[in-house]
Amino acid sequence: MRTTSVADQVTRAALELFATQGYATTSVQQIVEAAGVTKGAMYHYFQSKDDLLFAIYERMLSLQKSRLDEIMARGGAVEEVLRTVCVDVIETSIDFLPEGTVFFRSMHMLTAPRRQEVVRRRREYHDQFATLIERGQAEGVFRTDVPRSVLIAHFFSDVHYLSHWYSPEGPEDKTEVAQQITDLFLRSIRANGGGATDG
């Protein structure tokens, strides 16, 4: 119990400092002071600021991947499975909005091995997402006139852009936003126009 709380305290302190004053200008000393722990305690879990920045984002990546695995394991009609996956990734991205904002702003400062690990983990998720699109295309549900990579980029660009405009204090909650973005995406990838002529 104690061990988890030290790692959590350090991660939370780092997240807050990176968000308010930037990754580059935050020192390890400031992080441990804000967390109320010693440097030795921090270094037991994180070897560097680099490790901390990666850990902040890794929590979201791990959660989203485990949720994706669960949703796909349940099975079902391809469009409904994809709908559930899309809503989930948007909702969890909103839940981790501060983490995502800090990470994307500072990702270029990660060491090359850490950057490569993030790319590998995200590609793993995208590849699994792509299998759903591929299955839908094979079943004639999703369009095939646009490359699969473009369809996937279309969805995830919306997800990555959330931090630029979404506010938890805004008029729409995360579920409404997730359903709206998912609906727009699914309409755009359906075969035969995807209901673009509705209304």
Rank of each mutant, 00 (worst) to 15 (best):
A34I: 01
R12S: 07
V28M: 14
R115G: 15
R143C: 02
F18C: 12
R74F: 04
V159C: 08
L186V: 02
P113A: 11
A13Q: 02
K49L: 08
T144L: 04
E70H: 04
D158G: 11
Y45Q: 05
Q179H: 15
R12W: 00
V102D: 02
A13K: 02
I71T: 04
L97R: 07
V119M: 13
S157R: 07
F104Y: 14
I152W: 02
R143Q: 10
S188M: 06
D145N: 07
L53T: 08
P168E: 13
E79F: 06
I133L: 09
G22F: 14
R120A: 15
T84I: 06
K65N: 10
S48R: 13
M42W: 09
V159M: 09
V146D: 06
R148N: 05
V150R: 07
D145C: 01
E172H: 15
A196V: 01
T20P: 04
F54A: 12
Y57W: 08
Y161C: 09
T131E: 13
R12V: 01
R123C: 10
A191Y: 00
Y125R: 09
A24S: 15
V10L: 03
S167C: 09
A41W: 05
Q21A: 12
V78T: 14
D95C: 07
T144W: 00
D8Y: 00
T182C: 02
E139L: 11
A112T: 15
Q180S: 15
N192H: 14
T26M: 09
R115W: 12
I152G: 02
A138F: 08
T101H: 10
C86K: 01
R143P: 00
M107Q: 15
A34G: 03
D51K: 08
Q116S: 15
D127R: 15
V102F: 02
L52A: 06
Q29S: 15
G40I: 10
F103W: 09
G194K: 00
V28G: 11
M1P: 03
E124V: 08
L97W: 07
K65Y: 12
D145S: 04
C86N: 05
Q137Y: 05
Y161G: 10
V119S: 11
S62F: 06
S27A: 11
S167R: 14
F46E: 09
I181A: 03
I94W: 07
A73P: 01
A55I: 08
T20E: 12
E58H: 10
S188T: 05
Q180W: 13
G36S: 01
L63C: 06
V6W: 00
R12E: 07
F142G: 02
C86W: 01
S167Y: 06
A7H: 04
P168T: 11
E33A: 12
E91K: 13
V32E: 05
G22P: 05
V10P: 00
R2M: 04
D88N: 11
T26S: 12
A153P: 06
V150P: 02
T26I: 10
S48G: 11
F155I: 01
S5Q: 03
A55M: 06
Q47T: 12
D145G: 01
G22N: 07
Q179C: 14
A178P: 05
Y23L: 14
A19E: 12
S5H: 00
A191K: 06
G76K: 08
S66M: 04
F46P: 06
A41I: 04
P98K: 08
